[in-house]
């Protein structure tokens, strides 16, 4: 063990480089985990496992957010998604009962696979443009670090994006009203129209 460290030292790697390499490895590992978890979401036959894999996926993404200097969003991701939304999912699964789903190679699935494969290739083509050169933006890393991520977002939100923010609040209100009307009132109308 000590020899290995000595060897590393002898390569004349300074602290920064080592931490950089470590961070890159970490990011890569987390990204791969996220991909594997998302595969788990769609491949598990039982919804409960899908939900758990989704939680893993979201946690990984929250970690990635952290590593990309978005502390506030990482917190929101954990609290809103992994916390509230997924709890909701689990509740519903518990309520409706989780049933295994049969897999088959129907036309629908094959065609879906083909189309999504094409889509994936097309999306990967966006990588052909190469690395993005950092530009001198309005809010540099230093500024964010000075005031803190949450505060910086708050300032930005209330200065430049106030209308989308208010619209989002309106959207939530509408969603609340919609849920109440869906959950509260009887659904005779729906039943009448349904063909069994």
């Amino acid at each position: 063990m000590m020899e290995f460290l000595d060897q590393l030292w002898s390569l004349n790697l300074d602290r920064e480089t080592v931490f950089g390499l470590f961070e890159q490895g970490l990011v890569f590992a987390i990204g791969m985990t996220a991909i594997l978890a998302s595969l788990g979401v769609i491949l598990c036959a039982t919804p409960i496992y899908s939900a758990l894999y989704l939680i893993v996926n979201m946690m990984c993404l929250a970690l990635l957010f952290l590593l990309y200097n978005a502390e506030f969003l990482a917190a929101v991701q954990v609290i809103v998604y992994a916390g509230a939304v997924m709890i909701l999912f689990l509740f519903i699964i518990a309520l409706l009962g989780a049933k295994k789903e049969k897999r088959d190679l129907s036309f629908q699935n094959l065609a879906g696979l083909g189309f999504v494969g094409l889509l994936f290739c097309e999306l990967l083509m966006s990588m052909m443009v190469g690395e993005t050169k950092p530009v001198e933006g309005r809010v540099t890393l230093e500024v964010v670090q000075q005031v803190g991520s949450a505060k910086a977002i708050g300032i930005e939100l209330f200065s430049h994006h106030i209308i989308p923010f208010e619209l989002a609040s309106l959207l939530l209100l509408v969603a609340v009203v919609g849920i109440i009307s869906l959950a509260k009132f009887s659904n005779k109308q729906l039943r009448k129209r349904t063909r069994f």
């Binding site: 629908q108 879906g112 189309f115 094409l118 889509l119 097309e122």
Partner: peptide, 20 residues
């Protein structure tokens, strides 16, 4: 619904083809 979703994906693929 799934058929519709498939059509949506197909449409997305076609549009991206044009974009690229």
């Amino acid at each position: 619904v799934r058929m519709y979703a498939l059509n949506m994906v197909a449409g997305m693929v076609t549009i991206l083809l044009f974009v690229i």
